[in-house]
Amino acid sequence: MEKRTRLILGFLALLLGLVGLVVWNVNAGSVHVSPGEIVSILLGRGGGNVVIVRSIRLPRIFAAALLGGALALSGFLLQTFFANPIAGPFILGISSGAKLILSLTLIGFLSRGVAVGSVALILASFVGAMLSMSFVLLISSKVKRMSLLIISGVMIGYICSAVTDFVITFADDANIVNLHHWSLGSFSGITWGNVGVMASVILPALVVAFLLSKPISAYQLGEVYAQNMGVNVRAFRAALILLSSVLSAAVTAFAGPISFVGVAVPHLIRSIFKTAKPLVMIPACFLGGAVFCLLCDLIARTAFAPTELSISSVTALFGAPVVILVMLRRQKENL
């Protein structure tokens, strides 16, 4: 069966890409770690670079993979929700909303000399995500044109970023530099503790999304048909909004706003697998997002080493052209 072959080959390619990029990411950097050494470190036999690999590179790799997957999945869910192929957490301003509330929280706590835990970070960024999301929902109830929705989202994103910049500029704290760095998006400085927290948020969300495959497939046909097929549309819409917000909040909390992954990856996955079935799309988008972000992080770390690029610049470089491509293709279909 041709369909099945495509499915198997697609997943095989994604897995190979994932493994390959993990190895490459461990290997590359200011200190080179040979594949032989990697194996011996992973097996616990130790080596000269145990600390670098165990406490810097591996958590960062896990984070990039998890957060990349979360972004792509969040993008797919939003695209389903808005029936709009270029919807995504960044482009709709949801990441920026999360960033704003997160910065306010951080500055608030830091100025009082209180350390902020991972869970509080996620909560703050979830509140911000929901705030932006409610604006987007409000606008989407008024405008039906897909391009207008996107423009509104981009504007919300700009407003949030501008306010964040003000806040950071006027905050008098030594952590400003870090904050500024984070607000551009980066996977650096992630600890195993962080990875644990993000995994415990993202992986359950992934499972829930996968279990929602069936109503998602119904919803893809349109709300009217979904309802007639037996989907409780109100509850389902709420679930989609919550899931996608949780996912993008988790990402923003740990890595700042990362652009275009949510739009580009689902689109690439759709063209590889030639299907929009959520049963395939959800795991494939997650894997694809992981691969995409590992690749981008590799480039961000190593392209101009020792200077590190912001991850968002790299994802935008690859992701934005994909968005343009999607829009052009849509235009052609509508003619």
Binding site: A83, Q220, L221, G222, V224, Y225, N228, R270, K274, T275, A276
Partner: peptide, 11 residues
């Protein structure tokens, strides 16, 4: 139902 609303059927 068979309604006049367009049924979206991507791919």
């Amino acid at each position: 139902i068979v309604m006049t609303e367009r049924l979206r059927a991507e791919l």
